[in-house]
Design a protein around this nucleic acid. Structure first.
Lengths: 151, 151, 151, 151
DNA sequence: TTTT
DNA sequence: TTTT
């Protein structure tokens, strides 16, 4: 079914490095926290309010491995993904819920080269086996035949 | 602080009508669940998988009141907003977290007129006091002076 | 290069059916116009203003063919894509530019079944060879292994 | 009318400083070019292809003035806006069209402080008279009363 | 050229 | 708890 949309777009700073978990079959999953900020002036008190929101980012396979290599704590990153709320049981057997952003695209926004290990073009390396968990500009290689055709 | 982005865009169906709460000062808040669906073919088993994801939508003031009047259970709606995770205590005093989408814009997608109470243009009524909780096309009335000027 | 984002998200009504062009190699391309509307109250005159904006949508391969089959003039559709400005020469040899939205994802929003030819699940048919020109919920089949794992 | 969506989200680098135009009534408009990049590997030839796409950004009033002060050529910026195609006549009286992005929100992504004139918090200064042409995190000051209430 |  |  469909006719629905589930999309999240974040620009924020990582609160930690990615924590990886490798599957036997060769797959992998990684998680890290991402912080976004909001500031506004409270209309009643007139004071400046500042809030930080933390998001649970989940990446898989190639994308996760690229982040393991190149994404450092504090880096700025653009994340696109889908909201997913996982259900789990706490130690008392109670249902608990945790909302995550399953990343489908990302792009590094921290300028490179300052002693970092990042190669010139790593931020746009395609995530091959899992096409969608990668760079926006990378995974949609539309238009190879033409774009010059007169129609 | 800033330089960050926290944006959610959903198209889904409401699982219930909006539950309103009115503040003494005149403000109001409303909540309703929104369902999005995803289907894909499991590559290993080849079977068709279908998942429903539920989102907690939060609206305020004018926007909430428009939804109270016109949004019915099962309606399709576009929601734009921000992710916010609220912390609360359960009856055992344990910290619990609930992630919500604070709606900043919306537009009704269910065709009207089939016996509905919706006025011709209600889906684009501006939410005055809270400019951002309204229709995309309504709140950004950019460009009244020109758009024909030669520059 | 990368570290950039080029994303367009539209909900509108098609102004015409898709015009297809088939390549010899088996590929195809299709184009159709999409209308979005905006209404607002002119603050100076107080009058209600209504504008229609027309967008040039470009689809390829599987996605284009799905639209050729099922998308009718006047249908409502969600389109996600990238902006691309094409350069061409008019009959006087002057440079002309045309901005298009190269569709990477879409989902039909017009309710089906009213005499339409649309099969139950066509709106979520995956665009195989070109993974990204398809349904949002379809192309990102993240998470087949787990989502129940305790980490 | 409504029930439609017209949204563009870009992260790119400015190709020039903003060109301002001031109206007599006190309003202002500014324009600058923004570059986004895409790279992919041509499947047929196997060669790496790199394209730059240029976008015409239009800002108004407070937002334009903030960019005039603080946005430098080459800076990275997040732009959110609406697509609008303007019609104009060339010197031969022919109809010409130019597609622009009318900015509704933005956030600076270039790290500050490197000799720049940018104050610590300028990137989140609210654009008062025109609420929507400003920072994402600024213009939607939802939730001043509570967020701790038990419902 | 769409839709409400 | 929605929808197709």
């Amino acid at each position: 079914m469909s006719g629905t949309l589930n999309k999240v777009m974040l620009i924020g700073h990582t609160g930690d490095e990615i924590k990886m978990h490798y599957f036997e079959g060769g797959g992998s999953i990684g998680r890290f926290p991402l912080a976004t900020n909001e500031t506004y002036t409270n209309r009643t008190t007139g004071e400046r309010v500042s809030n930080t929101e933390w998001h649970n980012i989940v990446m898989r396979n190639k994308a996760a491995e690229i982040c393991e290599k190149y994404l450092k704590k504090g880096d700025k990153i653009y994340i696109e993904g889908r909201l997913k709320t996982r259900k789990w049981q706490d130690d008392q057997g109670r249902d608990r819920y945790s909302t995550e952003i399953q990343c489908t695209e990302f792009t590094f926004l921290t300028p490179k080269g300052e002693g970092g290990a990042m190669p010139p073009d790593s931020s746009s390396a395609p995530a091959k086996e899992q096409v969608h968990t990668s760079q926006p500009q990378v995974e949609e290689p539309i238009g190879e035949e033409d774009d010059d055709l007169p129609f």
